[in-house]
Lab assay of single mutants.
Amino acid sequence: SDLEELEKFAKTFKQRRIKLGFTQGDVGLAMGKLYGNDFSQTTISRFEALNLSFKNMCKLKPLLEKWLNDAESSP
């Protein structure tokens, strides 16, 4: 289901973010620079904790996926 997908992604996202050495705040700032939407550390934290509305989670997921792919592919 969509919800299970989101839960899986949130977990994976957190693990990969930590492995890359980024804080939640770093992610929020980087996404602001890249996509012009500033995200607070709290928002990233709540995403990882599945603590946002389903609609908000769905809106954030593609942006976070893109950020993660970019972060992992940059030298």
Score class of each variant (00 low, 15 high):
residue 66 K to Q: 10
residue 51 N to E: 08
residue 18 I to V: 11
residue 56 N to H: 13
residue 19 K to A: 03
residue 1 S to F: 08
residue 64 L to I: 04
residue 74 S to C: 12
residue 48 E to N: 00
residue 67 W to K: 02
residue 41 Q to F: 10
residue 75 P to M: 09
residue 56 N to R: 13
residue 60 L to A: 07
residue 3 L to F: 09
residue 45 S to R: 11
residue 75 P to Q: 07
residue 62 P to N: 04
residue 68 L to G: 02
residue 58 C to G: 10
residue 9 F to S: 05
residue 18 I to H: 06
residue 53 S to H: 04
residue 74 S to H: 15
residue 50 L to P: 02
residue 47 F to L: 07
residue 59 K to V: 07
residue 41 Q to G: 13
residue 47 F to C: 00
residue 65 E to M: 14
residue 16 R to G: 06
residue 51 N to L: 10
residue 19 K to S: 15
residue 41 Q to E: 14
residue 70 D to S: 08
residue 46 R to W: 02
residue 72 E to F: 04
residue 60 L to V: 11
residue 52 L to T: 07
residue 53 S to D: 10
residue 52 L to N: 02
residue 48 E to Q: 00
residue 59 K to M: 09
residue 53 S to N: 14
residue 53 S to Q: 08
residue 57 M to Y: 02
residue 69 N to K: 06
residue 72 E to I: 04
residue 35 Y to D: 11
residue 71 A to P: 08
residue 60 L to S: 03
residue 69 N to Q: 14
residue 25 G to V: 05
residue 75 P to G: 13
residue 27 V to D: 01
residue 51 N to Y: 05
residue 63 L to V: 10
residue 63 L to H: 13
residue 52 L to E: 06
residue 5 E to R: 12
residue 58 C to T: 07
residue 36 G to S: 15
residue 64 L to Y: 04
residue 71 A to W: 08
residue 73 S to W: 05
residue 23 T to S: 14
residue 46 R to V: 02
residue 37 N to L: 12
residue 72 E to A: 10
residue 45 S to Y: 07
residue 60 L to Q: 04
residue 21 G to M: 02
residue 45 S to E: 14
residue 47 F to T: 01
residue 46 R to Y: 07
residue 2 D to G: 12
residue 71 A to I: 08
residue 61 K to W: 05
residue 75 P to A: 14
residue 44 I to T: 01
residue 51 N to K: 15
residue 62 P to S: 05
residue 56 N to T: 15
residue 74 S to F: 07
residue 57 M to W: 03
residue 55 K to Y: 15
residue 69 N to F: 15
residue 74 S to V: 14
residue 55 K to G: 13
residue 37 N to I: 10
residue 48 E to L: 01
residue 67 W to L: 04
residue 22 F to S: 03
residue 61 K to S: 05
residue 54 F to P: 09
residue 18 I to M: 12
residue 51 N to G: 12
residue 50 L to A: 13
residue 69 N to C: 06
residue 59 K to D: 10
residue 70 D to P: 02
residue 51 N to M: 11
residue 49 A to H: 13
residue 29 L to E: 13
residue 64 L to R: 01
residue 48 E to S: 00
residue 37 N to S: 12
residue 9 F to G: 03
residue 64 L to V: 04
residue 17 R to D: 00
residue 47 F to P: 00
residue 48 E to P: 00
residue 44 I to R: 00
residue 54 F to L: 09
residue 45 S to A: 13
residue 46 R to Q: 13
residue 74 S to R: 10
residue 68 L to P: 01
residue 42 T to S: 05
residue 18 I to F: 03
residue 60 L to Y: 06
residue 47 F to R: 00
residue 69 N to S: 13
residue 30 A to G: 03
residue 73 S to I: 15
residue 28 G to R: 04
residue 55 K to I: 06
residue 46 R to F: 03
residue 33 K to G: 15
residue 48 E to C: 00
residue 56 N to I: 10
residue 55 K to C: 10
